[in-house]
């Protein structure tokens, strides 16, 4: 996978997850693949990082205490948001309508759906496959069921 390192070299990524272990895990995988990674453990800090230095990729968890990942996602995808085209991958344990029907929220908001979606647990291979798919084809959107 060394080719990926070169390909992604110099690219910036922001990983936002309330679980510190997971930000460490994902950032380690991304750094291993040439990314320069910044991490945040809540939505507020994550948004700050994104706005300070807009990254090439955002990895966002949905369920977080305080402002949730869905809230941040909706903000970053607003029509008047200059950062709305930054590729965004949602990494979540939520698969279906368990606690939050985020897909329904996205549909009703008539905004761009996430570029990628990874359901936990995450293996390095799956993460990087989705990351590369998203980066190689930024117009790709997740097919919402």
């Amino acid at each position: 996978m060394d080719y990926l390192k070169k390909e992604n070299s110099g690219k910036r990524a922001v990983v936002i997850d309330d679980e510190e272990d997971l930000t460490t895990y994902f950032s380690t995988i991304l750094e291993e693949n040439g990314f320069s990674v910044k991490t945040a453990n809540n939505a507020e800090d994550g948004e700050k990082l994104v706005r300070e230095e807009p990254p090439d990729l955002i990895c966002l968890d949905l369920l977080m205490p305080g402002r949730t990942g869905i809230n941040l996602f909706l903000r970053l995808r607003r029509r008047d948001e200059p950062l709305r085209d930054i590729p965004l991958i949602i990494i979540s344990g939520i698969k279906e309508q368990i606690n939050v029907d985020w897909k329904d929220i996205v549909k009703r908001s008539q905004i761009r759906v996430p570029n990628g979606f990874i359901e936990k647990p995450v293996t390095p291979q799956r993460l990087m496959r989705v990351v590369n798919d998203v980066l190689n084809n930024p117009s790709q959107e997740v097919q919402l069921g």
Partner: peptide
Amino acid sequence: HSIKNILDGLLGG
């Protein structure tokens, strides 16, 4: 969901 996080934590570890 919580287990998935823990699993990810373990995988990450």
